[in-house]
Computed example of a mutant assay.
Amino acid sequence: MTPVLVFDGDCAFCSSSARWVQRWAPSRRAEVVAWQHTDLGAIGLTAQECSTALRWVDGERHSAGPVAVADYLRTARAPWPALGAVLGTRLATAAAWPVYRWVAEHRHQLPGGTPQCALPTGPRPDEAAGGAGR
């Protein structure tokens, strides 16, 4: 299976961010895809999971939020794998989750965002899992 970074294609901010990543930190082996154009069942994700956080799937390994970013960066061309290794450390991940959540909750107010970018309300599956994804 080709590893995938799965983002919210209905969100203009997320789509702009995905295009930026594809241009400036291209992966050597992974794809960047909108969850709305992906067979989620085939990669073991649900629409609920994908609507609340960026997702990384590499075989049996699933991650979310900044951990997903770190996992993707490890597959990118230099110098990005080094940043992915740092972001993937326990300390950096713990510091990155609050920032990630703030950006996710305000993405409709950020440059390129629209009212349609606002996250759905309700409990987040990541919080029940301790914020580390699966």
Rank of each mutant, 00 (worst) to 15 (best):
A42R: 08
A42N: 04
A42E: 09
I43W: 02
I43D: 04
I43Y: 04
G44Q: 06
T46M: 13
T46C: 13
T46E: 14
A47Y: 12
A47L: 12
A47P: 07
Q48V: 15
Q48K: 14
Q48P: 09
Q48W: 14
E49W: 11
E49P: 07
E49D: 15
E49N: 12
C50G: 08
C50R: 06
C50D: 11
S51M: 14
S51H: 13
T52I: 13
T52W: 10
T52D: 15
A53T: 06
A53K: 07
A53Y: 07
L54C: 08
R55A: 14
R55D: 13
R55L: 15
R55M: 15
W56P: 09
W56C: 06
W56F: 12
V57A: 10
V57I: 12
V57M: 09
V57P: 02
V57L: 10
D58A: 10
D58M: 01
D58F: 00
D58V: 00
G59L: 01
G59C: 03
G59W: 00
E60Y: 02
E60V: 04
R61L: 14
R61P: 03
R61V: 15
H62D: 08
H62S: 11
S63C: 04
S63I: 00
S63N: 05
S63T: 07
A64Y: 04
A64E: 12
A64Q: 09
G65Y: 07
G65R: 06
G65P: 07
P66Y: 05
P66I: 03
V67A: 12
V67T: 11
V67R: 13
A68C: 04
A68Q: 04
A68N: 04
A70L: 04
A70Y: 06
A70I: 01
A70V: 00
D71F: 00
D71K: 00
D71V: 00
Y72M: 02
Y72G: 01
L73M: 09
L73P: 01
L73E: 04
L73I: 05
L73T: 00
R74Q: 10
R74D: 02
R74C: 07
T75M: 07
T75V: 00
T75Q: 03
T75S: 03
T75F: 01
T75I: 01
A76Q: 08
A76K: 02
A76P: 06
A76M: 04
A76G: 05
A78K: 10
A78F: 13
P79A: 12
P79N: 11
W80G: 01
W80Q: 03
P81Y: 01
P81C: 08
P81E: 06
A82Y: 11
A82H: 10
A82D: 11
L83D: 08
L83M: 10
L83N: 05
G84V: 02
G84H: 03
A85R: 13
A85G: 14
V86H: 09
V86K: 09
L87S: 03
L87Y: 08
L87R: 01
L87E: 05
L87W: 08
L87M: 10
